Amino acid sequence: MNKKRLSAQPIREGIAEISGMIKVVWRDYRWNTGRVVRDWHIDPDSAEGLEIKVRSVECKKTSGKAS
């Protein structure tokens, strides 16, 4: 059976100032199946009321070889 290996790339993230520090609130990943999944770094309920800015995440592919 030939199964395709799953992989995901980060595509965007939400950031906010929390206690005087800029923190990642969530990050969206696009899987090689086309599905987009959001990974929360804080409790989603506590994000209510935060001023969240969305920014794109560029991920450079690596060959996996150490240089």
Rank of each mutant, 00 (worst) to 15 (best):
L6W: 00
I18R: 11
S63M: 10
E13V: 01
A8V: 12
R5M: 09
K60Q: 12
W40M: 10
R12Y: 04
V37R: 07
K3V: 11
G14C: 07
S46N: 09
V57T: 10
A16M: 06
D43N: 15
N2S: 09
R30K: 14
A47V: 07
I18L: 14
N32R: 01
V54F: 00
R30H: 01
M21D: 13
K65E: 13
N2W: 04
K23I: 00
P10L: 07
V25E: 00
R5T: 12
I11T: 14
E13W: 01
V25Q: 00
T62F: 04
K23W: 01
S56L: 06
T62S: 13
N2F: 04
S56F: 01
E17W: 02
K3N: 09
R5S: 08
I15D: 00
E48L: 09
K53L: 08
V57I: 15
V24Q: 06
S46G: 00
V25F: 02
Q9N: 10
S46P: 00
G20Y: 06
K23G: 01
A47F: 06
K53H: 05
A47W: 03
G14T: 07
S67H: 11
Y29L: 11
W26F: 14
E48Q: 14
H41W: 03
K3W: 02
K61S: 09
L6N: 09
V25H: 01
S19Y: 07
K53E: 07
M21N: 11
P44L: 05
V36G: 02
R38G: 05
A47N: 09
I15H: 05
K4P: 01
S63A: 13
I42R: 13
S56P: 11
G34T: 06
W26I: 03
V37H: 08
S56R: 10
A47P: 02
T62E: 14
E51Q: 10
T33A: 00
L50A: 00
V57N: 02
R5L: 10
S56M: 09
C59E: 14
I18M: 08
D39W: 05
T62L: 09
E48S: 09
C59W: 15
C59I: 01
I11C: 10
W26A: 05
R5F: 03
A47K: 04
G14F: 02
V37P: 00
I11E: 06
M21P: 00
V36A: 04
W40S: 07
E58I: 12
W31R: 11
H41K: 15
E58H: 14
Y29P: 03
A66N: 09
V54L: 04
K60T: 14
E13H: 11
P10H: 06
G49I: 04
L50D: 02
D39K: 15
K4C: 07
S63Y: 06
G34P: 01
E51N: 08
Y29F: 15
K60C: 06
R30T: 10
R5Y: 02
G49F: 08
L6D: 10
T62G: 13
V25Y: 01
S56N: 10
W26L: 04
T62D: 06
L50S: 04
L50Y: 05
C59Q: 14
V57P: 03
P10D: 09
M1T: 08
A16H: 03
L50K: 02
N32K: 03
V37S: 15
G20E: 04
I15P: 00
R30Y: 01
G20F: 07
S56V: 03
T62Q: 12
R35F: 02
W31A: 10
